[in-house]
Design a protein around this nucleic acid. Structure first.
Lengths: 172, 172
DNA sequence: GTTAGTGCAAACCTTTTGCAGCTCT
DNA sequence: AGAGCTGCAAAAGGTTTGCACTAAC
């Protein structure tokens, strides 16, 4: 399992590998999606109903500080929470569709090139880098074009507000 | 003044250019630094003590939605608030020192190249892009090296927590 | 047995919302 | 005049903290 590296890194720093942390680590690592704290909490509760939301936040903070996960905001589609992913993968940009919310990952040489240039130019020691690109995916470009022309024929009141994300009540 | 473009853009959309918005627009544009909502509010109050924090948030949201300002988080140095800058400049990356917090801007061809590649690769229509790079500036690299070797000779309890940002009480 | 980590409740900071009154055009 | 905007109060959303108890090493 790919979390082994992370577990070693924690051990070296004298950080205890508790049951709760095992659960969270495995979830972050196994998950294909980018998880936010709340989603991670919901998943973790399935493994251990007593696991507390606070523990999720504390664990994420720990991993973030140790440079073991990256924190993203994905252009705040869906709220102001942060998303996390393990640091194992090759450097990549996140490409977020502002209409459907789909997130693609882009790997490519401009990213390495950028990092190198920043290091050379400023004598900077790059620890982490994050690139997020918002726009419209090819599918939504077509839909938007249609919506626009329809809107011209309809009363303009039908602009739909993106609903604020609700979360289960804390006591739930 | 460089806000003219913004003001035109607002007018075209039938958005009123109120006294409050003028103040905020001018502050965002004139300021060299990256302002967050709270700082912008403090500055705005100097021009108009009655101007409300809520108006700041509403104006920022408006400008953001209109694509007139970019929202950054600068790797969350100093809290979870967002920072804003006008959209006039050429595309650039923000390079943030994780020790001293200084923010540099980097312009360079990898950014344009990245944008083009994402458009080609996914058939994506890029609206906004954000690159933030965290690490250590050359100055802090030296300081850190010294701190490390000193730490080896000292009791390790002296790790300084970054203080949580306090803001003036709302009634203030 | 120590020390780090957990759960719970309560705080905290940042941002949004509802509504009555005000103001641009 | 009337849509749009502001201020105020209050709430919401997301995250952190204090403290007594528990568990990993």
């Amino acid at each position: 399992m790919a979390t082994e590296g992370i577990k070693d890194s924690l051990k070296e720093r004298g950080i205890r590998l508790t049951r709760q942390r095992q659960i969270l680590l495995d979830l972050i690592d196994k998950s294909g999606e980018h998880l936010d704290a709340e989603r991670l909490y919901q998943l973790a509760r399935q493994a251990d109903p007593k696991l507390n939301r606070v523990t999720v936040y504390r664990t994420l903070k720990l991993l973030k500080q140790g440079g073991l996960v990256d924190e993203l905001d994905l252009m705040h589609m869906g709220g102001d929470q942060h998303y996390y992913e393990t640091r194992m993968k090759q450097e990549h940009a996140h490409v977020i569709c502002l209409r459907c919310g789909k997130v693609e990952e882009f790997f490519g040489e401009p990213l390495q090139r950028l990092r190198r240039q920043v290091e050379d130019h400023f004598g900077f020691n790059v620890i982490l880098a994050r690139t997020e690109i918002g726009g419209y995916c090819s599918h939504c470009q077509r839909l938007r074009a249609r919506e626009m022309s329809e809107a011209a024929h309809l009363p303009p009141e039908e602009v739909i507000e993106k609903p604020r994300r609700k979360r289960a009540a804390h006591k739930g």
